[in-house]
Structures are given as structure tokens and as C-alpha cells.
Design a protein around this nucleic acid. Structure first.
Lengths: 332, 332
DNA sequence: CTGTTAGCGCGTTCAT
DNA sequence: ATGAACGCGCTAACAG
């Protein structure tokens, strides 16, 4: 007996009430007699009735779904962000519709477009897009928040203080006596990468330290390793490296060691993000509370969806300097 | 001018055609004159029309969305699985609706229930649930596949040969001359964990090696470390450890070293999964092609959704032994 | 090739 | 407290 799924009408018939009563009972309205409600519930149970989500959306024009548009993220960063978002969403009865796009702005646009009508709100992370590009892509009429990218004036943004984080990492290098510093930056198109570079440079300037070495990495392990090898091959001298993120730092670490340099004795090294690998490798870094950011963003998004709240003040999550072996004499 | 979104009727009016023609043009039907199609496309562009997904679903009874139900996964395993799935899905015009549930079977049931009517098919990973439990939870009428868990007879399953993987890891330990082996198992309720333990034991038996030590871990770093500390405290002797997964192995590695034991000289160590950490720590392991599994599962699911295909033969993805420093004399 | 129209399943007035 | 009826936006069957 694989009959088609029961509809609200089947339930109404079986409970001997009208569809309106079933709907009311279902949505917990007050004006339903206990007796009626029980009969409805019984019928629902008998028929294994499950409301059709599409019909519900069409008629109520809300989906109880949130769209999440992410760049081509890897590893722990991705999973932590989703974990934070999913937790906040499911606690509030929302589901997450996912779209992991690639760097191309055009794809970003498509990703956002296909979500229209399927979600009540949108959380977008697009560090490679400018503020204006994001503004152009986001549908006017739909609530939206931005996560870890250039803050918008029109939408709440959940960000971190990249400059301060990078500056404090740099000050730490200076504080342990390193003077000839180097920075391996992230992709030029990436907002966070640019901010971190700025933070590094301003800390150097503020301390009156010698002009630093700056190379352009790609947020990846290979990029970090390549830059370091180049420097070393050119005979550059440096005793402290601040990398744009942990993966870059890890690449740098391997290149340094492959060249016979000791870390931290010869060169101190610090990254950014605090991915789990960092802890295991004893890499000093700046911790980004990714899951918290995701949760905060979704929490706010749900508030916007349910109560039309506006407001666009960026919410800045605190960073934390995590000191480990690569900037300390002792092993972790 | 923040008017309500344009509907198909607005488009029809502006293009001076009927809604049916708009629908046909939209869905790429052949029987539309070029002239008509152009006018429709023009109107769509003018009005920034985007079809309402809910209405479309209701009327066509398909959502172009796939549900993904996952356990409380961490790190790279999670992100790789999603990456593989999302790639396969988006290439075919499908979106992923996510639900990360917790171990509780009741929650699993809820997670699946809320997806009814919102997705065309379901991909479920539930290693902590029995075959029967999953069968009971999965809606009869909806296409579904299972990923990395006890294979069902009713649905295609995408699995790995845990026993053979564990056995080959164990044989490798034996082959490099280790005889007093130990196994740190995963949670007893987990299907893959049980299979891996079996694989370990049968390899031991087949080789006629001495009775091994077996401890119950939890797939986590702490569990692995705890078991090793216990063994060491009790004065147990062993020269090779096969851990149920990489995180467990990493915990074991740290406990071993903290106790002054050298790896692999004193104790050889091998894990399972090949998460990125494994490579960085030089941990030997068994590689599970997580992204490929996810992609294959979704690919098959889409086929089932679009063409009612049946079939329930488990698809077994190949594993690969990855040898690194923790089972070899030399560093990686 | 094109237009008219009847549902799809549900929420929600409006009467009663 | 309950029921009848309309409309949400779209697809598809049917007429022309």
C-alpha cells in the first residue's frame, strides 16, 4: 500500500472536521476545542500525515530555511562555521540551504539567485568580493547578513578586527626581540588578507622597526613555502615571520626547516586563524572564533526574518593571541 | 520602489503573451517561437523576474533540492564530504539542504521528518544507527542513499571496506616486524568502528600473532591518549598500535611520546581516514576518499530522483594504505 | 504555436 | 469554535 501522501483534506475527512480546523490545530492556534484538536491529532497519527512544505511556503510565503553562500573553503574553517550556523538555526526551527561557490563573482551571483524564493534570509561570506559587489548581488527584499568580509552599510556584518589581530601578532614578534620581520600576505583580492597586511605594517611603523619583507602568498601551504624559499634563495635575512593565515605559516615552517633553519631559535613564526593543525604543530597564532561568528550571524538573521529588524552595525568578534612553540623557546 | 517581486503573470502581461508561454520559455520547451521567447526573456530581464521556488515545487512536486543528514562530524571529514556532495549536486542543478544531527536516533528521526516535502531525495550518514533503524526512519516514498554506514538492502549504500582496510593496516604492522599489537577501537555503537576492529582481529588471527591488546576509544584524541596511558600505567607491552581513526592515533601518539617512547622505533602507529593532520604529523594511515564517496552518492541519488532507478547494490570505494613516518624508520 | 484553465496543498479571511 | 471559499505562483492538460 504505497498510496500518495496524505493531505490536509484527508486528515479533515478522517477527523470529521474542516481543513481550517486541521490547520489551526496544526499551528497551535488557541481557538480550537480540546476535543477537536485530539481528533485531528489522532487522524494525523493514523494517516502519518506530514504537511507539504512547498504548499505551506507558497501560502504563508515563508520557508523556515536560511541560505548560506560560502566561498570554496577548506577544512576546519568550513566545518566550524557550518557547525555554528546549523546549531543556531536548528535551535530556532530553521534549516540551512547550502551553496559553496567559487571565487568568480558571476558564480556568486548565480548562487544567490537560485536561492531566491527558497529561503527566508541569506548569510553570505564573500571575502573576495567588494562591498559594492555584494550589495549589488544581494536581493533588496530579502533579509541578509554578511560574515567575515568587508562590512556593508546596508546589512549587519559579523567580522573580526583583522588589523588589530595582525598588529598584536606582530607586536608579539617584536616583544620577543625580533627586529627583521617578514610578512607573507594572502591573495590581493581578499579583504581579510589586505586588512591583515595593513595591521602588520602599522605595527611595524608604530614600533619604528626596520622596513619589513613582504611577499604575496595565496592562503595556502604551497604559497607560504614558495615565498620563504624565494627569500632564502635571494639571501634575505629575517628573524620573524607573520603569515596571513595558518596554512601559509605551515608552508613557511616546512620551508624554513627544509633549509636547516630552526624555529623559533633562528626564525620565530606566527599565523592567523588557529585551525587545529596549529595546535598540533605548536604554531603560535591568532584565534578566530569561527563557530561563534557563524552562530551569531544566524541568530541575527533569524531575528531579522521574524521581526523585520533593521540595523547594520558590524558586530566584531574578539580575537585572541595564542602563543605556542614557534614563538617561544620551549616546545609546546 | 520596493514593490513586491514580479510574478509570472506580470511577465506575461509585459511580454503580451500568456502565462503558459512564459512557463514554456522558462523551462526551455521546444514549442515556442523565437520571437515569443525573446519577448519573454526581455520582460523577465526588465522586471528582474525570478520564479517562485515554492510555487514551482507545489505544482511540479519536485524541489531540485537534496537533503543531507549527517552526524555530529568534525573537521576535514565533514568538509570533504560536503564538498564532494555539493559539487555533484550543483553540477546537476541541485541544492543541498543540510541537517547535522546528533547521535540520538530520535533526533535523527526528526531531522529526516523536517525534510519531507522540502527535498527530492535524501542522503543519510548514520554510522551509529543499525540498518533496521535507518530503514524505519527513511520515508518509503522518497529516493534515498546511505553513506558510510551499515548498508541497507533497500537502498544504494556508499561504503568502504573497513575490514579490509583495517586488516591491511594490521598486516603492515606485522610486516615491519611488530608482533605485540594493540588496537584502540572506536565507539561500540559505531558501525565502522566495529568493522575496523573485526578487520584488525582477523588479520591478527590469520597471521597467528599473539593475542592483542584491545581498548575502547571514542574516535577522539582524548580517548586515544587515555587508553595508551592506561596501558602504559598497567605495564602492558606492545610495539605496534592500530587506531580506529586518525584522531585516536594522534592522541595515542602524544601519550606515547609523553611517556618517553619513540615512534616508530619503540612503537609503530597507524591510523585510519587520512585527515590532513595525518600528513603533517607523518602518521601512517588508511586513506578514505571522502569527497569521492560524497560525490558518488549524490550522483546516484540524482539518478534515482530523475529516473526512478532502483537497485541497492552497495558501492564500495577503494581504500589506500598510506605509509609515513610512524611506521617507517625515516621521517616523512 | 499559443491561450485558458484547473489543480498542486495549505493558510486565512469571512461568515456562521 | 468551526466551516466554506479564495488565493499564493506555477505547471500542464486541453482547446483552439
Amino acid at each position: 500500500m504505497k498510496s500518495r501522501p496524505a493531505t490536509i483534506r484527508d486528515v479533515a475527512r478522517r477527523a470529521k472536521v474542516s481543513v481550517a480546523s486541521v490547520s489551526r490545530a496544526l499551528n497551535g492556534h488557541k481557538n480550537v476545542r480540546d476535543d477537536t484538536r485530539d481528533r485531528v491529532l489522532q487522524a494525523i497519527d493514523d494517516l502519518h500525515y506530514v504537511p507539504n512544505a512547498a504548499a505551506r511556503s507558497l501560502s504563508s510565503s515563508q520557508t523556515r530555511t536560511l541560505g548560506v553562500v560560502l566561498p570554496d573553503l577548506h577544512g576546519e574553517f568550513f566545518s566550524e562555521l557550518i557547525r555554528g550556523m546549523d546549531k543556531a538555526a536548528s535551535e530556532r526551527g530553521y534549516l540551512l540551504l547550502l551553496s559553496t561557490m567559487h571565487a568568480d563573482p558571476q558564480l556568486a551571483g548565480q548562487a544567490i539567485a537560485v536561492m531566491r524564493g527558497r529561503v527566508d534570509g541569506l548569510a553570505v561570506m564573500a571575502p573576495q568580493l567588494s562591498r559594492d559587489a555584494i550589495d549589488r548581488l544581494m536581493p533588496e527584499e530579502m533579509p541578509g547578513v554578511q560574515v567575515i568580509c568587508q562590512p556593508s552599510k546596508k546589512r549587519p556584518s559579523f567580522i573580526i578586527d583583522n588589523r588589530e589581530g595582525a598588529a598584536s601578532a606582530t607586536r608579539h614578534l617584536l616583544a620577543i626581540g625580533r627586529r627583521r620581520l617578514a610578512h607573507i600576505a594572502g591573495p590581493e583580492g581578499n579583504f581579510d588578507a589586505r586588512e591583515r597586511r595593513q595591521g602588520f605594517l602599522s605595527a611595524i611603523a608604530a614600533a619604528g622597526a626596520p622596513a619589513p619583507l613582504v611577499g604575496a602568498g595565496d592562503f595556502g601551504e604551497d604559497g607560504g613555502a614558495r615565498i620563504v624559499r624565494d627569500w632564502l634563495a635571494r639571501g634575505e635575512r629575517f628573524d620573524g615571520v607573520m603569515a596571513a593565515n595558518d596554512m601559509t605559516a605551515i608552508g613557511a615552517l616546512e620551508a624554513l626547516r627544509a633549509h636547516g633553519l630552526r624555529v623559533p631559535e633562528d626564525v620565530a613564526l606566527i599565523g592567523f586563524d588557529d585551525i587545529p593543525l596549529a595546535r598540533h604543530l605548536g604554531l603560535s597564532t591568532v584565534r578566530v572564533p569561527v563557530a561563534d561568528i557563524g552562530a551569531a550571524a544566524v541568530e541575527r538573521l533569524v531575528a531579522m526574518v521574524t521581526s523585520q529588524e533593521a540595523g547594520a552595525t558590524p558586530e566584531v568578534q574578539p580575537l585572541e593571541l595564542v602563543l605556542r612553540a614557534t614563538t617561544q623557546g620551549r616546545p609546546h
